[in-house]
Design a protein around this nucleic acid. Sequence first.
DNA 1: TTTTTATGGTCAC
DNA 2: TGACCCTAAAAAT
Length: 261
Amino acid sequence: MPEGHTIHKAARNQRVLVGKLVRASSPQGRFTEVAQLDRARLVDIEPLGKHLFYRFERRGRVRRLHVHLGLAGRFRLHSSPPPAPVGAVRLRLVTDEQTLDLRGPLICELVDDITYAAARARLGPDPIAPRSSPARFRTRLARTRVSIGAMLLDQSVIAGVGNVYRAELLFLAGIDPRRPSRDLTRVEVDHLWQLARMLLRAGVTDGRIVTTRYGGADLPAAPKWRRTYAYKQRECLRCGSAIDRVKLAGRPCFFCPHCQR
DNA sequence: TTTTTATGGTCAC
DNA sequence: TGACCCTAAAAAT
């Protein structure tokens, strides 16, 4: 399920296709430009936040594909030859060894260099990326009264955080999601960034969001079935208070009113 | 079997 | 802010 970790995991899995010539098709028919990718060579896959950018080359020309899974989008990797497409497969890339299916994406489109650069420029630093820096994250938070809960869902502030990680980051940092961003201390902001790095990278490895394995010594051990501290929970694992929820940036943010200040 | 819900985002008002 | 889009899985019937 797609927050940033899903996208980076997908990019890793799909690396087996890099360097290969692909047969491209859109069994569903909705990706009308797909012919431009047919018999092209996939040369690179770049994940950034919740977005994926693919670079292809065909007859010496670069083609760029932009994919965003949205809420419902999924990838599936088959071994070739692939089974007949089931359901709404927007894009199918077939190589000799592997076949990649994409269904239900929010975005699946070819982009020119300008559009590509603009899409990237709209995104904030991605804590999963090896060389990302929290500098822009800090400056965006420093001068706004918008709540930290709302800012964490803004992809131009920090790329890749979604509603689950938002709740978990704020719980582990002990920060009330309603606080104005500019009131956070430098230590709190840096703590949020470090937690984002750690938790989202763990999500790439684990292939899902499990934050209760990464809580630290001050928290009681979580039962094995419990994957989150705050998101969609009823009771706080630390103090037993009822988990509360507040709508921020249009979506429910779960938090402990006692532990998060 | 049908309905609801979701970890996302855009657009019109 | 709410309506809407997309799809699949979970929940309700």
